[in-house]
């Protein structure tokens, strides 16, 4: 449900990058979102489309890449990705410790690039 706020922030960033790089239109925006991020792509698509009608961003496609959860073990420091993609309490493949791992990646919500025409 907070995808409306995310769309608003995303549009503001894209507009500033368009001005900085002299783009007139945007065709594609690449979004990277972590496994633990609670953003729902379908809801962001909907919000983005609704908010860009009759603007230079109308018709731009949001392309998504999910960033897997990786953690470093709380006991031995080994880095690993859990087999169940979003499970924080998972035995470390090296020493078996289940609890308290530190999240290395998986909380991201970034724009990676914008494709458009000058």
């Amino acid at each position: 449900m907070h995808e409306m706020s995310i769309a608003e922030a995303l549009i503001r960033i894209v507009e500033s990058e368009m001005a900085a790089h002299g783009l007139r239109t945007v065709r594609r925006i690449k979004v990277r979102h972590g496994e633990l991020s609670t953003m729902v792509p379908e809801a962001l698509d909907f919000a983005f489309q609704a908010m860009t009608v009759n603007t230079a961003l109308e018709g731009a496609v949001l392309e998504y890449e999910k960033v897997p959860l990786t953690m470093s073990c709380s006991a031995c420091g080994t880095s690993f990705s859990p087999e169940i993609p979003e499970l924080l309490c998972t035995p470390c493949p090296s020493c078996g410790e289940e609890l308290g791992h530190k999240v290395l990646t998986g909380k991201e919500l970034n724009i990676e690039y914008i494709k458009g025409d000058t």
């Binding site: 922030a9 790089h21 783009l23 919500l109 690039y113 914008i114 025409d117």
Partner: peptide, 16 residues
């Protein structure tokens, strides 16, 4: 002309 702009910005940077 078609152009790809690398951005690498946190979408919620304004809130942060």
């Amino acid at each position: 002309m078609s152009k790809t702009i690398p951005v690498i910005r946190n979408i919620l940077e304004a809130n942060d």
